[in-house]
Simulated assay, not measured.
Amino acid sequence: MSPLPSLSATPRIAFLASSITVAQQALEQMRLRYGHHSPQDADVICPLGGDGFMLQTLHRYGMLGKPVFGMKLGTVGFLMNQYREDDLPQRLALAEPAHLRPLEMLALTESGTTTGSLAYNEVSLLRQTRQAAHIRIDLNGQTRVDELMCDGVLVSTPAGSTAYNYSAYGPILPLGSHVLALTPIAPYRPRRWRGAIVKAETEFRMQVLDPYKRPVSVTADSHETRDVIEVTIRESRDRQVTLLFDPEHNLEERIISEQFTV
């Protein structure tokens, strides 16, 4: 069932588009056909572009609590629906919701500053130089990995588990599973450790063991902080976004299908 407040009349739609030409052309056509409202005044937000632009939209307008129906006009569109100009109000009326909670990241840098950010896909720690990173991993205050020598390590949400996490040989997580994936990136020691699946309530604390010789950056979706010495990650308790999908291509089915792709 769609969360739109009233579907008897044409919903108020806020159209947004990435900077690529085809998306800007579609933006003009959709606004001419269906009108345009600001995100603050709209019933639903409709970004036109790829997954990167969808994440930008969620970061910018997620706090409004408006459902988001994206349409693919970019390179990657796992979080998007097929672009069609016709019958948008009917598609919105039939759309199925997927409720996502972002990760909250808090990073402490060598200079003593702290940086916070949200991540709807993943938070990843990555080495900044040719030398491997050395990272200690605590879960809920208990050390689980004394020293991980690696290119990096990431924490992924179910919605993001088919992205960078999957490329790093991490598990695909079903929506609604209430778990997160902890996945090492090119681990050297311990050589046999391949990560873990943990409860969504888990708090992660990553400590960089040799930050001056082996500097590490952290990226929450596309927001990067360099020269970190400690990073805390947990699922947000008070932030949630709702994505809308055509019933024949809902997000849960896409995640299941990814596990059977050869």
Rank of each mutant, 00 (worst) to 15 (best):
Q25S: 09
M1W: 04
Q29H: 00
W193G: 04
F69S: 00
D138E: 15
Q207E: 14
G77F: 02
E28M: 03
E201T: 15
Y169F: 13
S236N: 05
S167Q: 09
Y166T: 03
S6C: 07
L180K: 04
I45T: 09
R194W: 00
L180C: 13
A168Q: 11
A26Q: 00
T113M: 12
P67E: 07
R144Q: 14
G170N: 10
G74T: 08
R239N: 03
Y83T: 05
N165L: 03
R205Q: 04
L88E: 10
L243F: 04
T114V: 13
S19K: 11
S8I: 04
G52T: 05
A95W: 09
R205V: 14
Y188D: 03
Q24G: 00
R31E: 09
R254G: 11
D151C: 06
T261P: 02
I255Y: 08
Q56N: 07
E85M: 13
F245Q: 03
Y169E: 12
Y83M: 14
Y164N: 14
S217V: 00
Y164M: 06
V44D: 12
G170R: 06
V153R: 10
M80S: 11
Y120C: 11
L175D: 10
L94R: 13
S124M: 11
D51C: 00
R205D: 01
A93V: 08
V208T: 04
A98Q: 14
D238H: 07
P39H: 03
T109G: 11
L48F: 00
G116L: 05
T183F: 00
D221F: 00
P3I: 03
Q131L: 14
D51T: 04
Q29E: 13
T232N: 01
R254N: 11
L7H: 10
H99E: 13
G195N: 05
F245M: 10
G35A: 05
R205N: 11
T242F: 01
Q29Y: 01
S117I: 02
L243Y: 07
H178D: 15
V153N: 13
I172N: 12
Q128L: 14
W193H: 06
L32Q: 12
C150P: 03
D86H: 12
R214F: 01
V241F: 02
F260H: 15
T162P: 14
R226P: 01
R60W: 06
I229D: 01
P47W: 07
D238M: 00
T183M: 02
A9E: 13
V145C: 10
D227P: 05
D246R: 08
G52C: 09
M71S: 06
E224G: 01
